[in-house]
Design a protein around this nucleic acid. Structure first.
Length: 300
DNA sequence: GGGCCCGCAGGG
DNA sequence: CCCTGCGGGCCC
């Protein structure tokens, strides 16, 4: 079977799986009327660059979190996001936001402030003061905003499930429908090379099976049971196949639940097994910006 | 564009 | 100290 055929097959399987998760009330809202109107308008005026009003939303800059030098007693701030439209269920323990305490000795460059973070990323749910749709240029910035801690890793594991994940389009057969998507786990890559040809890489092609023994994959599997919300950021590298990926940088798209975890034959040379997960967006959140960008070539 | 290197977060 | 990880920057 050719790569293209296998890819189609995997995509069809993943898409069917997403659809089989049940009717999602968000689905009609993911293509809101405003976007449809914009789409029509954009086609009419045939301008490759949309008007500024369309650009404002997704490119909202991350609020630079001022490091309020953690006062011991007074640093507690209200954990309520009062006035938000998000409808939180009782069971969603978002954790009490505590000012982060730094256990690690950090190398300080000249003039660098010690604390880059106001909140500890090791908590479930929203990070206070970070709105859905917030955008960062790099993973480092996103990490400093406490939304997704790791600079490279796509999964931030925790005891009751993953805290957050990064969608960067690294797998050709992942399906992104905005309100729901499939996600491939970690592991099974050869990052070090051989003794004779050491590599010391951070990412690499699939070269062995993934499994739920992997710490990251195990965390996402736990998310299925605990139904803790997972923060999701979408990266620009996914824009080739997902219209929900930002054109640049990384965007916080809010909270999702992991509804299913399974193992399937991945789309890779060698047919190695990969861990896959089906995500569904928590209701009541701001719509995901849809990227209609001009250079869309590969629509199946 | 690809290849290579390497900092950092996070955990054992 | 070790290891991993859907980064990013540099060089070519």
């Amino acid at each position: 079977m050719s790569y293209a055929e296998e890819r189609e097959q995997n995509i069809a399987r993943n898409r069917a799986l997403l659809d089989g998760l049940g009717i999602n009330p968000l689905r009609p809202k993911c293509e809101p009327k405003e976007n449809l109107r914009k789409k029509v308008a954009a086609k009419k005026r045939k301008s490759p660059l949309p008007e500024s009003d369309e650009l404002e939303e997704p490119l909202k800059k991350a609020p630079r979190i001022a490091d309020d030098n953690n006062e011991p007693g007074g640093a507690r701030r209200s954990s309520r996001l009062a006035g938000k439209t998000v409808d939180y269920k009782q069971e969603q323990d978002r954790g009490v936001p505590e000012p982060i305490t730094f256990k690690r000795s950090q190398k300080l460059k000249v003039g660098q402030v010690k604390s880059k973070r106001t909140y500890d990323p090791h908590m479930y749910g929203h990070i206070p003061d970070v709105e859905v749709g917030t955008w960062w240029a790099t993973r480092e910035d996103c990490s400093n905003a406490s939304v997704h801690g790791p600079w490279v890793s796509g999964i931030a594991p925790g005891p009751d499930g993953a805290y957050s994940i990064a969608l960067s389009g690294g797998y050709d057969d992942d399906v992104d429908e905005g309100y729901a998507f499939t996600f491939t786990g970690s592991g099974g890559r050869d990052l070090r090379g051989t003794k004779t040809a050491p590599k010391n890489l951070r990412t690499a092609p699939q070269s062995s099976h993934q499994s739920f023994e992997d710490r990251n994959n195990a965390a996402l599997q736990r998310s299925v049971d605990t139904q803790k919300p997972v923060r999701v950021i979408r990266g620009f590298k996914g824009k080739a196949r997902s219209k929900y990926a930002p054109s640049e940088g990384y965007r916080y798209d809010g909270l999702y639940f992991v509804k299913k975890a399974w193992i399937e034959k991945g789309l890779n040379k060698g047919g190695f097994l990969v861990c896959k997960f089906a995500f569904m967006r928590m209701p009541g959140q701001e719509d995901i910006p849809v990227n209609d960008g001009g250079d869309d070539e590969s629509d199946e």
